[in-house]
Every structure is written in C-alpha cells, then in structure tokens.
Design a protein around this nucleic acid. Structure first.
Lengths: 189, 189
DNA sequence: GCGGTTCATGTGACGTTGTCAAGTGAGTCG
DNA sequence: CGACTCACTTGACAACGTCACATGAACCGC
C-alpha cells in the first residue's frame, strides 16, 4: 500500500509543512530541526535524509510559499470574469494578505536565496512571470510593463515589509498599507 | 586620565562597532558574542556588562545605523544650496546607497524592533521625521505629505530589499533599482 | 595615604543547537 | 527465503547564548 519511496516523499512533505507551521507559530527561532522532526513524527536526524542542511529545508519552505502565491495568480489569470485592472489589484492585495497572515514565511520568501537553491529561484521566477502577465494586461505595451511591474512588486513588498516591521505606523504617516497600495496603483499602473 | 565610566562607555562603543563590522563582513551568522568580544578586545562574557542579551546589542547596532542616516538627512536639510526636489532625490538615493553598501545592517534596521528597545524605536522615529521634513518641502500641503512620504519610504525600501534579495534581476524586470527610484519620484512626488 | 566598596571584566559551566558517523530494522528483489 | 537497500534512530561533538562566581583595579570617605 505505502511503498518505500511514497513514504519517503510523505516524510519530506511532512517536514516542510512542519517547518512552515513552526515558522508561522513561533518565528524563525522556533524552527529547530529537533522540533521539525518531532512535529513530523520522526527523529531529530531524519531531515538529513531529505535535505543536506537546515538552509535547504528552509529553501523548500520558501519554494512552497512562492508556489502557493503562484497558484493564486494562476486562478486569477484563468478567471475571465474580471477586468484586467481588477485582477492587478487583487494580485497585489493578495500578496499583501500573505505577508500579513504569514509574516515570517513572507520574510523567508524575500530573503536572499543563495545560488545553491535553484528550485527556490525557479519558483520565484515563475511567480514573477505571472505577475508580469497580469500587469501586461493592464499596461498595453509589454515593453513598458516590465519596469512598471518591477516598481509595483517592489513597492508593495516594501509596504508589507514596513508594516510587518512596525515601521508603517498610522500616527507617523497618517495612512495605512491598504491606502498606500490603492494610491500606488492609482499613480503607477 | 581614563576614568572608569569613560572606559566602560568606550568598551560599549567598541562592542557595537565590532558587531557592526562583523555584520558587514560576514552577515548575521558571523556576529557571535565571542567574536564581538574578541574584536572589541574583551572576553566573551563582557557584553553582558553592557547589554542584557544579544538582541539588545543588535538593537544598538540598528540604532547607530539609523542615527547615521538621520545625520545625513540633517546635513541635507541644513544645506540651503539645493532645491527641495533635489534634496528629496538625494535622501532617497542615499538610503538606497546605505542598503547597498551595508546590506546586512540595512536588513537589521528594518527588522521588527521589539517594544523592549525604545532607543531603537526613537531613532527610527527621528529619522522618519527628517524624511517627512524633506518631503513636506516638496509637497506643499503637509497633510498630504505624510501618506506620500509613507509611500516613497516604503517603495524605496522595497526596491532595496528586492535588490539585496536578488529578486530585482534586470533580465526579468528590464530595469534597475536606480531607474525605479527615478520613476517613483516622477510619478509620486 | 589607606581600607573598604563598587563594578567592569574574566572564567568555568550548562542547556540547546546544527551536524555527522555508526548502527538498525523494515521493505524490496532475485 | 536470504541478501540488499535505504530511511530512520541514536550517540557524540563543537559552537553558541547565557548565567554564577571569582578577580582586580578604580573609586571614595577618612
């Protein structure tokens, strides 16, 4: 019923999910290989059968998070019932939502992926491509869409990062992240 | 000549500087209390005479970095030889420059300062105020300057963060961080 | 000057962490 | 059914943050 390779793949999935859960619940310090193994139902050394080191496990978590965002964008692109501008707004606010709901995982997604994690780099690239697809539908010229897309992506990320870092206090800036995204789309897209 | 409190203050300064140097040179993993003490010329336990724990030492590094940025802005504001718009551009590109030259310290500056570090929060607030001063000189209405300032600050931070994380590749977005800052100022300020 | 006090620093120790090497046992195949 | 494979367990080690205690020089009242 459960072949050996299937159970190995299941363990790998369980390890990544356990790491993601621990990251969500307790931040980076809570992600211990011992805790990850424990939650996944294996021992502390088991992860080394699936990942060369802790960094690669975290890269797998980042990859999974990026893939989840990409799937949201896929659904958005497939849904032909919405106007392009509406899709763009939903794409950007969707990213902000992820950053708010899973701040630590979000920070991990935007941390520098060392060149030793090609799968993470590929997942980021695929997701960015979907962003560009959505943006190009709003901006007619696909040549102009790329820099505009870079600015939108960077700006929204900055807003989320400032929010999560506690640097975007309403008292200081007299505004909120949501308002800034609206203002951004208004001025840029 | 060197009183006891003076030498203690000097040691504290040396510890913060050593931590900042190690952070620049080897990233967060290189900042161990043993290495910090060693570079500052004291033992591994000496930092505990000046900081309750490692986190507070890092908060002092972040505070110092923010103060350095604020001093740059102070000089920019005092310099009456420049047009307000030029001052704004220099303020934003100056922040980007800091992010490029000291990526790890920059990341530390924008990490979430827990409420237990009021000095760090105060340094951030003071620096943001100077940003707002410069921005208000460009935007006439000081009421409108605050949200605009929040958007500019967040966006530039996002650009720097994307750059440092390797997520702003020219091939993908057909642009650079410098171009995006220019585009941002053009559209927003 | 001088004895007692204060306090920054040095040192030994402990629990935890990431990591590796050796061992183990269940699943797999001829 | 026997030998092999391979994911997993366990023991061990160095490094880390942190604490308790020891030390010695700078300070202060006399």
């Amino acid at each position: 019923m459960v072949s050996r390779v299937e159970s190995a793949a299941a363990t790998r999935r369980a390890l990544v999910e356990a790491a993601a859960e621990l990251l969500d619940e307790g931040g980076p310090d809570a992600v211990t290989l011992r805790a990850v193994g424990g939650r996944a139902g294996v021992s502390r050394g088991a992860p080394y059968g699936h990942f060369p080191d802790k960094e690669h496990l975290l890269a797998a978590v980042a990859t999974k998070s990026w893939e989840a965002v990409r799937e949201r964008l896929d659904a958005l692109i497939t849904d032909r019932g919405r106007a392009p501008s509406e899709r763009l707004e939903q794409a950007l606010t969707g990213l902000m939502e992820v950053g708010r709901r899973h701040p630590h995982a979000y920070a991990l997604m935007f941390a520098a992926p060392t060149a030793e994690h090609p799968e993470a780099v590929a997942a980021v690239s695929r997701t960015h491509d979907q962003f560009l697809t959505i943006i190009a539908d709003v901006i007619g010229d696909p040549q102009r869409a790329r820099p505009i897309g870079g600015l939108l992506m960077s700006s929204v990320h900055g807003i989320v990062a400032m929010e999560n870092g506690g640097h975007l206090t309403p008292e200081k800036w007299q505004t909120t992240g949501d308002e800034l995204v609206k203002l951004l789309i208004d001025r840029i897209a």
